[in-house]
Amino acid sequence: MQAIWTSMSGSVEAGLLYALMALGVYITFRILDFPDLTVDGSFTTGGAIAAVMINAGYSPWLATAAALAGGLVAGSLTGLLHAKGKINGLLSGILMMIALYSINLRILGRPNMSLLGMDTIFPPIERDRRWMLLIVIAVVIVIIKLLIDAFLKTDLGLALRATGDNAKMIGSFGANTDTTKIIGVSLSNGLVALSGAVIAMQQGFADISMGIGMIVIGLASVIIGEALFGAKTVFRATLAVVLGSIVYRIVVALALRVDWLESSDVKLITAIIVIIALVVPTASRSWTMKKQAYKRSRELAGSEAGR
């Protein structure tokens, strides 16, 4: 029982920390309608910047802020490639992701860097008081979520949402859609890098490959969240993303308890979760529609015959 509780609270904690990354993916994928693959690179950038700065003796808070800034820069470069360089969105992200791989290696100077025994933003805490930390993390994540909600209701935030919804329309009302795209992608990657930084501190190391597959995990969180908790309003949607991120971690933890699954199978499991979450709603909707159409046709045929 104790083991299950520990693994559950571990999943919730990881889910909350990765939720920052998922919120970033939500901003590009859902709000801007821009599938941004920079994420795989910028997540590592965040982790790398934090690890290097902490090892160099800087305050962990400053290191976290620098990681956020690094993500903002990486994202704005992807945005520039797409908006000003007119490169296809998917390709802009892939190009940045590849470029960031080399940059991340430059930042780290080696494939991985330990943070064990260093001061991080997480205070050293005894095992049985871990739940207190969990509550603090949850509160902080909720505050960040509420800040994003508030931003999306400002004049600029509305223009950002309209850019993904109907770019022609918001352009005809005088918003520069190039600028809103760059701001959106930048903000998204800022959150992703922030997530990378806190994950590096929580797990005690940064690794050149820590970002691989992040975009799919982000998508999984967004899609699972929307499917389970709905996305009618922005408030609901961002809440769903945070909860989706937690559910994803729990699902993975449970899957790994199956004897014949290895921890290296996590990425395959993730891909399958995303595929199921994408296919099932569409398929069930089309099946319901067909059934409905058949029912209505029969009713119409019946009333014709009765005449």
């Binding site: 400002t154 600029l156 009302f173 005088g174």
Partner: peptide, 12 residues
């Protein structure tokens, strides 16, 4: 907000 700057004020 046609043709005006769009900042961080509440939209509605």
């Amino acid at each position: 907000k046609r043709g005006q700057g769009r900042g961080l004020r509440l939209g509605v």
